[in-house]
Nucleic acid binder design. Structure first.
Length: 885
RNA sequence: GGGCGAAUAGCUCAGCUGGGAGAGCGCCUGCCUUACAAGCAGGAUGUCGGGGGUUCGAGCCCCUCUUCGCCCACCA
C-alpha cells in the first residue's frame, strides 16, 4: 500500500481524529492495579464557569508533556481531571441569568435556585473540559470529578466533622470582609487591594464643653455615624489635656470619649483618629482594648441602617456625599485632600469590601501550617523554582485563621445544626434530625456553605475516593507533581499541603512546579477589561495545537513571565510543517523499505550516519534531562535545533545521494538510518507535539509493537555506539562545506554554477576525512571537481578560505571579480586579526598563565595557534589576489 | 512598610558550578536546487541598565544607583 502525506500539514485533519481514537480506546486510562511505577498529577481544577484562557493552556500543556513523557518511560500515569464548583463565581453567573429574566434567587427560593445551578452546569458548565481536549490533554477522562459530586461532598463532610471534633473548626463573631454585592463573607485572600485615588477628609469634632475642635482625618466619612471614640497617642503633647474628655459626634449628637492608644501615629494627619469599631479592622482592635461600643451602621447591602439616623436607607456612597455636604454646611469640614489608598475589592465582583461584624466559621490553621512548613523545610515536598519557597514560608508563618463560611447557596452546605431548644450546635456526617445535646428535634441546618477552596484543598485525595481506602489512593497518592501558577499558591497549594498532611499523613505532592503567568506581547496581564486577551482556541484553529503547545513550552523558562506573541507561534507552526515535510521526504524514499528486514547494527555506517546518530543520542539525553528538571524551554530548543538544523538541514541532504543512487546496499543502509532517526525523533517529539507525531508515525512503513506512539518507548539515549573519530571527521567535512558555501555566497556565485575546488590539507587525518566524504562536499557545496591532498599544488588564481586545518581554494578563473574577492578576504582577515590579538594578549598575561587551570590554558593555546595559522593563510591569499590586480 | 523578580542584537527572550556573547522573529544578498517559498544558502547587528569592587579572567559573584513589574501588609 502506498502511503502519502499531503504537501502542507493541516492540523484540522489530524487533531480531532486522533484525540477521539485515543480517548475511545482508553489510552489515557490509569490502571490502579498496574505493577509499573506510578506517576500522578492532579489537574488544578478549572472553574465550571471557566473558558480556556492562556493560563490554562500553559498549565495543562506542561502537565500533558510530563504525563506523556512518563507514560513513554514506563510509568503508570494518572492525570486526574475535573472541575471546581466555584461557589461565588458560579452563583453569580446564574444570578445574572435570573436577573436577565427579571427574576432573582430570593423569589425562586434556595432549593429551586440550587436546582437551577445544577441545570446550568448540565447544559453549559464544564465546556472547558472539551477545550482542554483540543490542546491534547491526556487526562484520564473516565475519572473526571467535580468538587460537588457525591464522593467529594462526602470527603468535605468527613473533613469538616473531624476538624470540628479536633477543635480546629470554630465559630466566632468578629469583623470580616463582607461583599455587599455578593452578600457574603470572604476570606482575607479573596479581597484584592488596589491603590485608588481618593480623598482624605478632615472633620472637626467639637470637644464637649469647650469651643475647641478636634480634627480627625478619614478616607471613609460615612462611617462616622458609627464612631464611638476618638483616639490620640498617649505621648502626644498636643492632646494631653483632652484625654478622658469627650467630643460631640456631629450629625449624630452622640457624646464619645477621647481615648489614648499607642496605635495612633502622631505624625499622620492631625494625630487624632476617629474610631469606628464595627467598620474598621484597626478600630475593632482598639474597640476591644477600650471596651468601646460597637455600632453597626450598615446593612448587608451596604445601605445605612436604623443606627444611621437621618441617613437610614441611603446607599453608602450616597451617604458619604450627603454627610460630607452636611458637615460642610455646619462648618465642620476642615479640608479635603487628595489621597491615594488601597481599597479592598471582592475578587469575584469587584465591589468594594466592607469590614462587617458577623458570626462566621473558622479553621484554626496554625497547627496545620506548622506541619506544612516542616514538609517543605525537610524537602519532603520541593517547590520549584526554589525562590517560591520563601514566599510560601512567609505566608505560612504569618497565616491567620481561615474564614470558611459563605452566605451563598451554591456550595457544600455546612453540616451543622442549631438547636432551637438548647442553642447547642450539632455537627455530624449524616443529616441530623435531633440535637446531639438535648435530643430535641427542633434543629435547623446552618444555611451557610463552605468556601469553595475548602473542597479544593482536599482535591488530591478526595478525587481518589477518600475517605474510603481505595486502590487508587494506594497506588497514586501522594502525587508526583503539582503544576500550577503562583497566583493560587496560597489559595490552593498551601491549603492542600495542610489538609493532605492532616488527613493522609502524607504530603499531597512531592514536587510543586510553579510556572509563569502568560501576558500579552507588551507584558500586560491579559484581561477582558483591557481587551488584550488572546483566545487559545483561536490560536489552535489558526496554528494548530502542536505549534501552540511547542510555543508555550519554548517560552516556559523557569521563573519568568511569558510574553506571548503570535509571530512566535507562527514560527513554531513552520517548525511543525518542517517536520511534516521531512517526513514526507522520508516516506517517499521508504516505499520499498521494511523495518522488519533492516538491521542497523549490521550496516556499515557512513560518516553522516554516525554523525546524525550521535547527535540524536545527545539530543535524547538533553531532552530527558530537561524534562526531569522542568526546563521546558531547553527541551524545546534542543528538539528544535536537532530537528531542523541537524536532521533536515544536514542529514536529509547528506542522505540523498545514497537514497537516489544506484547502489542498492547503500540505499538500504541510508533508508535504515533515515527510518531509525525519524522514528526515534517522532517519539522524542511526541510529548510536545502529540498530534502530528502520531499522524506521521502511523504512516511509517512496517509494524511497530504498539498501537499508538504514546505507548512506545521514549528514547533515553542513542541507539548505537558511534565512533567519536567518525563524528569528528564529519564535523570537518561540514566545516569545509560551509567554507565553500560562504565564498560562493559572498561572491554571488549562482547556485546552479558547478565549480572546481582544491583542498590543501595539513594532516593525514584531514585527507582521510575528505576522502571518505568527498561525495558530500560535491553534492552539498555544488562542486564539479574536487582535488585534495597534503601540499597539493595551488591554482594560479584562487579564492582562499580556511576550514579546520584545511585550506579551501576556489580557482577563480573568469568566475569572479578580483576586487570583490580582495574585499571579502580583507573582511575575513580583520575578523581573524581580532581573534589572534585576543589570544595573544590573553596568553601573554603572566598572571593568567600562572593562575588559569591547565586545561583552559591548553585550550587557549590551541586556539591561538589555529587562529594564527588561519590568519597566515588568509594573508597569503590576499597577497596573491593583490598581485593579480 | 516588607519581600521577590527583571534590565543582554531592531523585537521577544535563552545563557548551567565565572574561562573567547546565543536562538527565534525581523533585516540585507542570492536562489521556485525533484520534502518543504510555512522553504534553501550566505550575511550584518551587541560599551550584556549606570558606577564601584573581588578575580589572572565577570553577562554570571559582592556593593551601590537608576528604571520597570509583581506579591504581601489594618496606618486613619
Amino acid at each position: 500500500m502506498k502511503k502519502e502525506l499531503p504537501k502542507g500539514y493541516d492540523p484540522a485533519q489530524v487533531e480531532q481524529k486522533w484525540f477521539d481514537v485515543w480517548e475511545q480506546r482508553g489510552d489515557f486510562h490509569a490502571d490502579e492495579n498496574s505493577s509499573k511505577p506510578h506517576y500522578s498529577i492532579v489537574i488544578p481544577p478549572p472553574n465550571v464557569t471557566g473558558v480556556l484562557h492562556m493560563g490554562h493552556a500553559l498549565n495543562n500543556t506542561l502537565q500533558d508533556i510530563l504525563c506523556r513523557w512518563k507514560r513513554m518511560t514506563g510509568h503508570e500515569v494518572l492525570w486526574m481531571p475535573g472541575t471546581d464548583h466555584a461557589g461565588i463565581a458560579t452563583q453569580n453567573v446564574v444570578e445574572k441569568q435570573l436577573a436577565a429574566e427579571g427574576n432573582d434567587r430570593h423569589a425562586l427560593g434556595r432549593d429551586a435556585f440550587v436546582e437551577r445551578v445544577w441545570q446550568w452546569r448540565e447544559e453549559s458548565g464544564g465546556q472547558i473540559i472539551n477545550q482542554l481536549k483540543r490542546i491534547g490533554a491526556s487526562c484520564d477522562w473516565q475519572r473526571e470529578r467535580f468538587t460537588m459530586d457525591e464522593g467529594l461532598s462526602k470527603a468535605v463532610r468527613e473533613v469538616f466533622v473531624r476538624l470540628y471534633e479536633d477543635k480546629l473548626i470554630y465559630r466566632d463573631n468578629r469583623l470580616i470582609n463582607w461583599c455587599p454585592r455578593c452578600h457574603t463573607a470572604l476570606s482575607d485572600l479573596e479581597v484584592e487591594h488596589e491603590d485608588k485615588q481618593g480623598n482624605l477628609w478632615h472633620l472637626r469634632y467639637p470637644v464637649t464643653g469647650t469651643d475647641r475642635y478636634l480634627v480627625v482625618a478619614t478616607t471613609r466619612p460615612e462611617t462616622m455615624l458609627g464612631d464611638t471614640a476618638v483616639a490620640v497617642n498617649p505621648e502626644d503633647e498636643r492632646y494631653q489635656d483632652l484625654i478622658g474628655k469627650t467630643v460631640l459626634l456631629p450629625l449624630v449628637n452622640r457624646e464619645i470619649p477621647i481615648i489614648a492608644d499607642d496605635y495612633v501615629d502622631m505624625e499622620f494627619g492631625s494625630g487624632a483618629v476617629k474610631i469606628t469599631p464595627a467598620h474598621d479592622f484597626n478600630d475593632f482592635e482598639i474597640g476591644k482594648r477600650h471596651s468601646l461600643e460597637f455600632i453597626n451602621v450598615l446593612d448587608e447591602s451596604g445601605v445605612i441602617n436604623e443606627n444611621g439616623g437621618a441617613y437610614q436607607g441611603q446607599e453608602r456612597s450616597a451617604a458619604r456625599k450627603n454627610i460630607v455636604a452636611d458637615l460642610q454646611t455646619q462648618g465642620l469640614l476642615e479640608k479635603v485632600a487628595d489621597y491615594a489608598n488601597a481599597v479592598g475589592e471582592c475578587y469575584r465582583c469587584r465591589a468594594v469590601i466592607e469590614p462587617y461584624m458577623s458570626k462566621q466559621w473558622y479553621v484554626a490553621v496554625k497547627p496545620l501550617a506548622a506541619e506544612a512548613i516542616k514538609a517543605v523545610e525537610t524537602g519532603v515536598t520541593k517547590i520549584l523554582p526554589t525562590q517560591w519557597e520563601k514566599t510560601y514560608y512567609e505566608w505560612m508563618y504569618n497565616i491567620q485563621d481561615w474564614c470558611i463560611s459563605r452566605q451563598i447557596w451554591w456550595g457544600h452546605r455546612i453540616p451543622a445544626w442549631f438547636c432551637d431548644d438548647c442553642d447547642e450546635i450539632t455537627v455530624a456526617l449524616d443529616d441530623a434530625s435531633a440535637c446531639k445535646h438535648c435530643g430535641s428535634s427542633n434543629v435547623r441546618q446552618e444555611t451557610d456553605v463552605l468556601d469553595t477552596w475548602f473542597s479544593s484543598a482536599l482535591w488530591p485525595f478526595s478525587t481518589m475516593g477518600w475517605p474510603d481506602q481505595t486502590a487508587t489512593l494506594q497506588k497514586f497518592y501522594p502525587t508526583s507533581c503539582l503544576v500550577t501558577g503562583f497566583d493560587i499558591l496560597f489559595f490552593w497549594v498551601a491549603r492542600m499541603m495542610m489538609m493532605g498532611i492532616k488527613f493522609m499523613d502524607q504530603v499531597p505532592f512531592k514536587e510543586v512546579y510553579i510556572h509563569a503567568l502568560v501576558r500579552d506581547a507588551q507584558g500586560q496581564k491579559m484581561s477582558k477589561s483591557k481587551g488584550n486577551v488572546i483566545d487559545p482556541l483561536i490560536i489552535v484553529d489558526e496554528y494548530g495545537a502542536d505549534a501552540f503547545r511547542f510555543t508555550l513550552c519554548a517560552f516556559a523558562a523557569m521563573g519568568r513571565d511569558i510574553k506571548l506573541s503570535t509571530e512566535r507561534i507562527g514560527g513554531y507552526r513552520n517548525f511543525v510543517n518542517k517536520l511534516w515535510n521531512a517526513s514526507r521526504f522520508a516516506l517517499m524514499n521508504l516505499e520499498d523499505f521494511d523495518p522488519a528486514q533492516a538491521d542497523l547494527s549490521a550496516c556499515k555506517l557512513t560518516l553522516a550516519d554516525q554523525w546524525i546518530l550521535d547527535r540524536f543520542g545527545r539530543t535524547a539525553t538533553e531532552v530527558n534531562q530537561g524534562l526531569a528538571d522542568y526546563k521546558f524551554n531547553d527541551v524545546a530548543s534542543s528538539l528544535y535545533s536537532f530537528t531542523w538544523h541537524e536532521f533536515c538541514d544536514w542529514y536529509v541532504e547528506l542522505s540523498k545521494d545514497d537514497l537516489y543512487g544506484e547502489d542498492a546496499a547503500a540505499r538500504q543502509r541510508a533508508q535504515t538510518v533515515l527510518y531509525t532517526v525519524l522514528e526515534g525523533l517522532l517519539r522524542l517529539l511526541h510529548p510536545l507535539l502529540p498530534f502530528v507525531t502520531e499522524e506521521i508515525w502511523q504512516t511509517l512503513p512496517g509494524k511497530r509493537p504498539c498501537v499508538s506512539i504514546m505507548q512506545a518507548d521514549y528514547p533515553l539515549a542513542g541507539v548505537v555506539t558511534v565512533d567519536a573519530a567518525a563524528v569528528a571527521r564529519m564535523d570537518l567535512l561540514m566545516e569545509v562545506i560551509r567554507a565553500i558555501r560562504n565564498v560562493r555566497g559572498e561572491l554571488d556565485l549562482p547556485p546552479g554554477k558547478r565549480i572546481r575546488v582544491v583542498l590543501d590539507c595539513k594532516s593525514a587525518a584531514s585527507v582521510q576525512a575528505i576522502e571518505a566524504g568527498q561525495a558530500y562536499i560535491k553534492s552539498l557545496a555544488r562542486v564539479e571537481t574536487l582535488e585534495f591532498g597534503i601540499g597539493i599544488e595551488h591554482p594560479q588564481q584562487a579564492s582562499t578560505q580556511v576550514a579546520g586545518d584545511v585550506e579551501v581554494l576556489l580557482p577563480l578563473a573568469d568566475l569572479v571579480n578580483v576586487a570583490e574577492e580582495a574585499a571579502r578576504l580583507e573582511k575575513e582577515i580583520q575578523k581573524q586579526e581580532k581573534d589572534v590579538e585576543f589570544f595573544r594578549k590573553k596568553l601573554s598575561n603572566e598572571k593568567f598563565v600562572a593562575n588559569a587551570p591547565p586545561e583552559v590554558l591548553a585550550k587557549d593555546r590551541g586556539k591561538r595557534t589555529a587562529a594564527e595559522e588561519k590568519l597566515a593563510i588568509l594573508r597569503q591569499g590576499l597577497e596573491k589576489i593583490q598581485a593579480l590586480k
